[in-house]
């Protein structure tokens, strides 16, 4: 794979993570537990959508085949999406969503914090803007994990169940492969080696769970495959909804 196609692939991984999670969070709008959370969910979804648009636009530019953000979001099939499985799972109840938000925002924070010094100036700029947004997302998720973990018996039980639901998808976030190895090698790396994010992520998430009186689930078999386009059945449905109107009017301007 040429360095150019590696860069396209890497930007798609980051962009698809953000796009698919934005789509999931948008599902909460007008059905959150309280009005403040309708605002917060929409806000986080908007930030992620903004990151996705920047990353997909850049992937299209580097690719040089004339694909813009919409061509990439609306005209790829699920086998061509590169997001991690974590973000495509249905939102579940508020505890499942909160567990996923903590896991993902803490991961994205460590990632963007390091990607700011990427040798690729566009990725560095996108990361520089995104890290501030993600800092807020992580804080928002943290506050809710504490409230739910240390709230009522029911919320504690649901929060544990939420962690159980999302935990099988954690390991995949930190998988290194040939692509990340190639792009994160050398003295001026373009990408961040996902494996090096694991320890700082663990430190942050572990401390939050401990304060909330929760424990990370152990001995959970990991599920992976998203980076290779091997998704769960959920992604097809998510994309069917996301893409149908756009695809029903080929070539139209909106």
């Amino acid at each position: 794979m040429s360095e150019q196609s590696q860069l396209v692939e890497y930007a798609l991984r980051l962009g698809d993570d953000a796009l698919v999670l934005a789509q999931r969070l948008g599902e909460w709008v007008a059905r959150a537990p309280e009005l403040e959370e309708d605002v917060a969910m929409a806000n986080v979804a908007l930030d992620l959508l903004g990151q996705a648009r920047a990353l997909l636009t850049y992937a299209g530019e580097v690719e040089g085949a004339g694909r813009d953000e919409d061509a990439l979001a609306y005209w790829r099939d699920d086998r061509d999406f590169r997001n991690a499985l974590l973000v495509e799972a249905p939102g579940g109840d508020f505890a499942v969503t909160t567990a996923r938000q903590l896991v993902f925002a803490a991961y994205q924070y460590e990632l963007y914090e390091r990607l700011r010094s990427s040798a690729d100036q566009t990725l560095a700029a996108i990361a520089g803007k995104a890290v501030k947004e993600v800092h807020y997302h992580r804080d928002h998720a943290t506050q809710w994990v504490l409230r739910l973990g240390d709230g009522t018996e029911e919320s504690h039980r649901r929060m544990r169940a939420g962690l159980d639901t999302v935990w099988p998808y954690v390991d995949e976030l930190f998988d290194a492969d040939d692509l990340t190895a190639a792009l994160s090698a050398g003295t001026a790396p373009i990408a961040v080696d996902p494996a090096e994010l694991r320890d700082p992520w663990q430190a942050y998430v572990g401390a939050v769970l401990a304060e909330a009186g929760l424990e990370p689930p152990d001995d959970v078999p990991a599920r992976r495959g998203g980076r290779q386009g091997l998704h769960t059945e959920h992604l097809g449905h998510l994309l069917a909804e996301l893409q149908h109107l756009h695809r029903s009017h080929p070539g139209a301007t909106w």
Binding site: L19, Q23, G26, E27, V29, A30, D38, V39, A42, N43, A45, L46, L49, G50, A52, R53, L56, E69, D70, A73, Y74, E241, L242, H244, L245, H246, H249, A252, W254
Partner: peptide, 17 residues
């Protein structure tokens, strides 16, 4: 969830927010 472009999706999310 069905907005026909990412730009329209962002505008609509912001509006509902």
């Amino acid at each position: 969830s069905r907005a026909p472009s990412l730009r329209r999706k962002a505008i609509l999310l912001a509006k509902v927010q």
